[in-house]
Computed example of a mutant assay.
Amino acid sequence: MSGPGPKALFVGALTRDTLYRVDDFSRGPGKYITEGTVSTASGMAANAATAAARLGGCPALWASVGGDALGPALIAEIAAEGVDCSPVRRVPGGRSASATIIVDGSGERWVLVDYDPVTQRAPEASELPDMSAYAAAMVDVRWPEAARIALTNARAAGLPAVLDADVAPKEILEDLSRHASHVVASAPGAAILTDGAAPEAAAARIAETFGCFACVTDGAAGSFFVEGPGLPTSHIPNPVVEVIDTNGAGDVFHGAFTQALAEGQGATDCIRFASAAAALKCTVLGGRLGAPNRKNTLKLMDETYHASR
């Protein structure tokens, strides 16, 4: 790919994340001294958009921030990554979202997120950016009313409409899945959506139930995907890397997957590309900060699967 890549719209969360590295956090209640701290603009959709930008795309972000001093700072930080943040709305009287994250010595994490219902209130359909400007759309579950609007309009325009089906109330996951062309779920999100099915079975059940492409990511076990109802389930293993921090890996996966879809890549290459990008993110502490560039992602993709683009 030469020159700027296709433009995708990312819809959902924009937060301030404060991450603490605590090697022995799993020992239980008590006092801990951190091994490192990172504070950064983040959020599922914002992280995915950043990944798409670093991978060669021209993404845009439709998110919601408060009228506080934090809002403009969050927007500026994501815009500096090459993400078009002009669609981000600012809500007077609202509070911008924030999260506290603890990462232990194995790279696993605990996440506490604070969303203000005033800031995250439902948008009007007229607030949706013009979908004719985009080659794909991806939404997360943190701003569900906006997600539904974006998915519905992307489908109407004949565009890939990707749902990041992470942990959320089942009714939200079901509602948004009905409007998506591609449901890409974490294993915990898929379990909620399918009443506890294991990842491989969950992928097939999601595809059958919602008539869509379905993929379930299962951490170190890789990804299971089904291209449509009644089709066989395929498995893509993850590249082997030294894991430092898994926080944000799923967001990077979704950003890379959506970027590859916008470029017109096939299902297998989309997931290999996303798997390589997410694996590289896990080698860096700091969520969004670990999103890799295209060169390194293609290199790891080729080394792992012997098939680069």
Rank of each mutant, 00 (worst) to 15 (best):
G3I: 06
G3E: 09
P6E: 07
K7Y: 03
A8F: 02
F10P: 00
F10W: 00
A13W: 02
R16G: 09
R16S: 14
L19F: 09
K31G: 13
Y32C: 12
G36I: 09
S39Y: 03
A41V: 08
G43D: 03
G43N: 09
M44D: 05
A45N: 06
N47Q: 04
L55M: 01
G56P: 02
G57S: 00
P59S: 00
A60Y: 00
A60T: 00
A60P: 00
S64T: 12
G66F: 01
A69M: 12
L70K: 00
G71S: 05
A73P: 02
A73S: 10
A76H: 07
E77V: 04
I78R: 03
V83Y: 05
S86W: 03
P87Q: 05
R89W: 05
G94L: 01
G94W: 00
T100F: 12
I101M: 02
G107E: 14
E108V: 08
W110R: 15
W110Q: 15
V113A: 14
V113Q: 06
D116H: 02
D116M: 00
E124G: 09
E127V: 02
E127F: 03
P129R: 01
M131A: 03
S132W: 03
A133K: 08
A146L: 01
R148A: 10
A150P: 02
L151C: 04
A154L: 06
A161S: 13
A168R: 12
K170M: 06
E171H: 10
E174N: 08
D175N: 10
R178N: 11
V184W: 07
A185K: 10
A185F: 11
S186F: 08
S186P: 10
T194V: 06
D195E: 09
A197F: 12
A201T: 14
A202E: 12
A203V: 12
A204K: 15
R205W: 13
R205E: 15
C212I: 07
D218C: 14
G219N: 14
F224W: 15
L231A: 14
T233R: 15
S234I: 08
H235N: 08
V240C: 10
V241Q: 13
V241I: 13
V243K: 14
T246W: 12
D251A: 07
V252E: 08
G255H: 07
A262D: 09
A262N: 10
E263R: 15
G264H: 13
D269E: 14
D269F: 13
C270H: 13
R272A: 04
R272L: 05
A276D: 09
A278Q: 11
A279D: 09
L280M: 06
G286C: 05
R288D: 04
K295P: 00
T297M: 04
L298I: 08
L298P: 02
K299P: 02
L300H: 03
M301E: 10
T304L: 01
Y305T: 04
H306M: 05
R309Q: 06
